[in-house]
């Protein structure tokens, strides 16, 4: 449930679901997100769900904070459908030419690479949110012994398709972008497809994601 609603500037509602990051809270956020989206509330022009917050942006010409807050507080969320979760498999190649940070990870985690990958590939990840750059999925949760900080100096350019880990999360760079995640491999799969207006994201909040190890040859010959 929403614990508190406040204003973020003059044109957005900041809905706070708590401080922790876990599946239960995030599932609530996504449920509200999908429900409010369906309501098509006049003036609302964007909804941004994240781990434990939902931001509702609106057009100040059409509504205001007070009206919208009142409306959101009186929604009957119980009638909203429960979250549907789809299972997605992502092929990744962990050849050293792609796994830019694997050496440093072995050092920092004090685990050798075989064990790092073993742990990574057996995990069922949960997609908490997508964004920052188009289609980028934030996937959790890594085991406690697999958690590292961001790179101290972020890369100016992380190659497109890079799969990285930081703290309890894994992530895929859907575009070449600056970034500080620890890169362990690369996927040939299109995770964001801007030509599909309806469903541009391959992975959506609430989905379960597993990674599949592929060879460099399979990577080169990969066909969507």
């Amino acid at each position: 449930m929403i614990k508190n609603i406040s204003n973020l500037g003059d044109a957005a509602l900041y809905c706070d679901f708590g401080n922790e990051v876990n599946k239960d809270i995030n599932t609530q956020v996504i449920k509200y997100f999908k429900g409010i989206k369906k309501e098509n509330i006049p003036g609302v022009n964007n909804l941004t769900p994240s781990y434990n917050k939902l931001i509702i942006s609106f057009d100040l010409k059409k509504t205001n904070y007070k009206n919208l807050k009142n409306l959101i507080e009186n929604l009957n969320i119980d009638t909203y459908e429960d979250l549907k979760s789809e299972k997605k498999e992502i092929p990744i190649c962990c050849d050293e030419s792609f796994a830019l940070d694997i050496k440093d990870l072995e050092k920092n985690l004090k685990i050798d690479r075989e064990k790092i990958y073993e742990n990574f590939f057996k995990k069922n990840f949960f997609c908490y949110m997508t964004g920052f750059i188009a289609g980028m999925p934030f996937l959790g949760d890594l085991d406690i012994n697999m958690r590292v900080k961001r790179l101290e100096t972020p890369r100016v350019k992380v190659p497109k398709g890079s799969v990285g880990i930081t703290e309890q999360f894994a992530n895929i760079y859907t575009f070449e972008s600056p970034g500080g995640w620890n890169i362990i491999g690369n996927t040939p799969k299109k995770i964001f497809d801007g030509s599909k207006e309806k469903d541009p994201n391959f992975i959506n909040p609430g989905d379960t994601v597993i990674f599949k190890n592929i060879t460099k040859d399979q990577y080169k010959n990969f066909n969507e």
């Binding site: 044109a11 957005a12 917050k53 964004g131 934030f138």
Partner: peptide
């Protein structure tokens, strides 16, 4: 902070 949504002007 735990990553969350942004809007222009933040």
């Amino acid at each position: 902070i735990k990553s969350e949504g942004l809007i222009k002007g933040v």
